[in-house]
């Protein structure tokens, strides 16, 4: 266990030493709050709360896709990765440390969003709901973490970065993260339930404001989790098989 924390600590150090990565994942969601949410829904408590939850989901997805997808693919290309396998520890501490680092980075990217929501909008929620939202955040990070792992373990680093970028926008837009519940253009409303972003954001909405979730979106979210998990496991095994057997 202490080795997991050691790996997490040094991986986190590596992340924060490249400030642009941290600034990117903290600044981008904060800016989207300031430019889109504050002027459009800032004055409406319900709208602002929903929009904040959407931005939170957006940030979780972005952090996971890039942190895991691009990060793992890049690490796989570095000689340090096989070197750590010659140390007296199995692959588990490094992997678990990576997940902890990802979760911590995701939580960090929440700080500016919540700060903007609390100071510049009328968004409100109750302490129990906020706590519920924090728990939901961990749940919501699952499909995106798996997606990131799948990208990171199956693709070379340049391709992984491109795929993360390509995946991220249609998922955000198509899942209805850019608009209030029920306010997205018709075709978005039609495809949204089939995207993992929709199920995730509905869970966030439900946590902060009691939104009634759509069973179809929940079922599809489960399907996405199973599918991305299968892809991630396959990718991880393939990578292990190629490089460490």
């Amino acid at each position: 266990m202490s080795l997991v924390l050691t790996h997490a600590r040094y991986q986190f150090l590596e992340v924060v030493r490249v400030p642009i990565a941290v600034i990117g994942s903290m600044l981008f969601p904060a800016l989207s709050m300031i430019f889109f949410v504050v002027p459009n829904a800032g004055g409406d408590p319900v709208g602002a709360t929903y929009a904040t939850a959407s931005t939170v989901t957006f940030a979780v997805m972005m952090t996971c896709l890039f942190q895991y997808g691009a990060g793992i693919a890049e690490d796989r290309a570095q000689p340090f990765e096989p070197y750590t396998r010659t140390l007296p520890a199995g692959p588990f501490p490094r992997f678990a440390g990576r997940l902890l680092t990802g979760l911590l980075t995701t939580l960090l990217s929440m700080v500016p969003i919540v700060a903007v929501a609390a100071t510049l909008t009328e968004a409100t929620t109750t302490p129990p709901r906020l706590l519920l939202a924090a728990g939901t955040l961990v749940v919501v990070s699952v499909p995106f973490t798996l997606m990131g792992l799948a990208i990171g373990y199956t693709l070379p680093s340049k391709a992984a970065l491109a795929v993360a970028q390509v995946v991220f926008f249609p998922f955000a837009f198509g899942g209805g993260l850019m608009s209030a519940p029920g306010q997205a253009p018709g075709f978005v409303e039609a495809v949204a339930p089939f995207l993992p972003t929709r199920g995730s954001v509905e869970l966030m909405w439900a946590a902060v404001a009691g939104y009634p979730v759509d069973p179809l979106a929940m079922a599809m979210l489960a399907v996405w989790i199973v599918a991305t998990a299968a892809l991630a496991v396959w990718g991880y095994r393939r990578d292990e098989g190629r490089r460490y057997t």
Binding site: T6, L13, R17, F80, Y83, L87
Partner: peptide
């Protein structure tokens, strides 16, 4: 536990300090 390895390709995380690299390996 009783071996040490220096791979052919220099393997260091570029953003860690020298002392941190050593401490990271020491923890094992």
């Amino acid at each position: 536990r009783h071996i040490g390895v220096a791979p052919q390709e220099t393997a260091l995380p570029g953003s860690l300090r020298v002392g941190e690299c050593v401490d990271f390996v020491r923890a094992h």
